[in-house]
């Protein structure tokens, strides 16, 4: 019976090649409108409940606080879409912060050079995660859990006995105010989005995350691609780290702690599948804004940090539950 209905439904439809871009836009909007609606709703709830929450400054600070983590989360989005997992990006964040700090404070290198060194280091550490997985076959969870502590240790060794602060003005500009980090966040999100949707390597992330074996049998170089995705994850963690130390005007190996979890949380809340194959950076940005809105809103209501953490934890579980439920109802 189901055969019949399927067949007849395909036969009545007629080709409409001109509608492609409109259909695509419609399709993308359909995917995103639920999280967007959730964001607006959550914002409105706090808007009603808290008087000081209603200012433009609050809105800007939500974006400002979201921006650095959102950049990191763009990398996490790529890795999760490809069916991978990187728990070490928080520690890569710490190492890169310390390395750039040393380059600036101790070696007095010009800001652009220090930034390039930092980006290179992040990409390298990310690629190392991917390479170890591909060569040993040890699961991503374990390899990057190892990376989490190993890179952290590396950051501590590099930072010990050093004063990593008072960076040149030309560097501090990167983290000043809300505007610059926000612009960089939108730039990074746009580039990552173009990478995922318009390029071959980006499309292969969806293929590998969707069904690795089909991708392999179709001739996709799964191992090499995976290394690239982890490299992008590391590169964006480094970008976030550079912005943060520019903002703080000091570097410390303890920075970046749990950032990988916040990033994963934002990605999942946005609606990217934890199981790979589906997702996008637009969703991640919204997911990060949802999380920051809740954090900022709750603090305006006088809720303690500990309770905020409990709330975020529950939201993460709910978001994954939703993902699982959507999968099974297909």
């Amino acid at each position: 019976m189901s055969d019949m209905s399927q067949n007849s439904s395909t036969q009545v439809s007629t080709p409409a090649p001109v509608g492609r871009s409109i259909d695509l836009l419609k399709h993308q909007f359909q995917q995103i409108w639920q999280v967007l609606a959730a964001l607006v709703l959550i914002y409105l709830v706090f808007f009603v409940l808290s008087e000081p929450f209603r200012s433009l400054d609050t809105l800007l600070s939500i974006f400002g606080q979201a921006s650095i983590l959102a950049i990191l989360a763009c990398g996490t989005t790529v890795v999760l879409i490809s069916g991978g997992l990187d728990l070490s990006v928080g520690s890569i964040f710490a190492v890169v912060g310390v390395i750039v700090g040393i380059a600036l404070a101790e070696y007095q290198l010009p800001a652009p050079v220090a930034v390039l060194i930092g980006l290179g280091a992040g990409a390298l550490l990310g690629a190392l995660n991917g390479t170890v997985q591909v060569l040993t076959g040890v699961p991503a969870f374990i390899v990057t859990l190892g990376g989490l502590t190993a890179y952290k240790g590396m950051a501590e060794i590099l930072a010990s006995g050093r004063d990593l602060s008072r960076f040149p003005d030309s560097f501090q500009v990167l983290g000043s105010g809300y505007l610059v980090p926000m612009l960089i966040m939108f730039g990074v999100a746009l580039l990552t989005g173009l990478f995922l949707t318009k390029t071959r390597l980006g499309n292969h992330a969806f293929a590998i995350g969707g069904n690795e074996e089909v991708a392999r049998l179709s001739g996709v170089n799964v191992r090499k691609s995976r290394i690239y995705y982890y490299m992008i994850g590391g590169l964006l963690a480094a970008t976030a780290a550079i912005l943060e130390i520019a903002k703080l005007n000091f570097a410390m190996p303890s920075r970046g702690q749990s950032y990988e979890l916040f990033a994963i949380a934002a990605v999942v809340i946005g609606g990217t599948s934890l199981f790979g194959g589906r997702g996008g950076v637009g969703k991640t940005l919204i997911g990060m804004l949802i999380m920051q809105t809740i954090i900022v809103g709750l603090s305006y209501l006088g809720v303690s940090t500990s309770v905020q953490r409990i709330a975020i934890g529950i939201i993460i579980i709910a978001a994954v539950y939703w993902d699982v439920w959507r999968r099974s109802s297909r």
Binding site: G209, V214, L217
Partner: peptide, 10 residues
């Protein structure tokens, strides 16, 4: 291949 022809998500 049987069951390995297409990626569902693409």
């Amino acid at each position: 291949y049987q069951d390995l022809a297409l990626v569902n998500e693409l």
